[in-house]
């Protein structure tokens, strides 16, 4: 029994995952987290720092880290990279003016060594807004098809209505589970 097998067995027993939620400010990260956890989303303030939620879903224990996206906070993102199993990148689909910003920040993240093993889920959020870009447009604007280093998936969602949040998280869990808890 190699060390890797022992580690995998330990992970399997714990069934615990660490998800890191990032994105530009005003993307809706905290709203997604609270909505997913069934909390009130009408009183959310811009995140000055970070939020952590631990919740059970599909037999897994999820540690979700939601870190503020303000420009002055982005340099602190790196402090949260360690042992991340899944990266959730949240995009404000109606914010056309900052899509280029959004693309640059994401591509910088994907070069990070400590995120190399993480699965990437892109939430094209705010689909409830009439001016929102489709997830195909976001996919193109962020050049997701050029990503070869990570497993990724883009899902259109609305944190306000809760639409597709579950589908996204389910995909993420399945992908991570197949990777971590699989036999080699």
């Amino acid at each position: 029994m190699g060390l890797l097998t022992i580690l995998k067995k330990m992970k399997q027993k714990e069934r615990e995952m660490r998800l890191l939620m990032l994105g530009l400010d005003n993307a809706g990260k905290t709203t997604i987290l609270k909505k997913f956890n069934g909390e009130d989303v009408s009183t959310i303030s811009p995140t000055l720092g970070f939020n952590i939620k631990t919740l059970e879903h599909k037999g897994f224990k999820l540690n979700i880290w939601d870190v503020g996206g303000q420009k002055s906070l982005r340099s602190y993102w790196r402090n949260y990279f360690e042992s991340t199993d899944g990266l959730v990148w949240v995009v404000d689909s109606a914010d056309r003016l900052r899509l280029e910003d959004c693309r640059q920040e994401l591509s910088a993240l994907l070069l990070e060594e400590r995120l190399a093993g993480a699965t990437l889920l892109v939430f094209a959020n705010k689909q409830d807004l009439p001016g929102a870009l489709s997830k195909e447009a976001i996919r193109e604007a962020l050049a997701l098809d050029n990503i070869k280093s990570h497993h990724w998936c883009i899902i259109g969602c609305s944190a306000v209505t809760g639409e597709n949040l579950l589908a996204g998280v389910d995909w993420l869990l399945d992908d991570i589970a197949a990777r971590i808890f699989t036999a080699d």
Partner: peptide
Amino acid sequence: QLRTHNTTDTQVYLHVTSRAIIED
């Protein structure tokens, strides 16, 4: 919510139910 960035010499007459933030 109100998120204000790179703004100078501006008056805001505001009703905000959660928080307002400023940056730069």
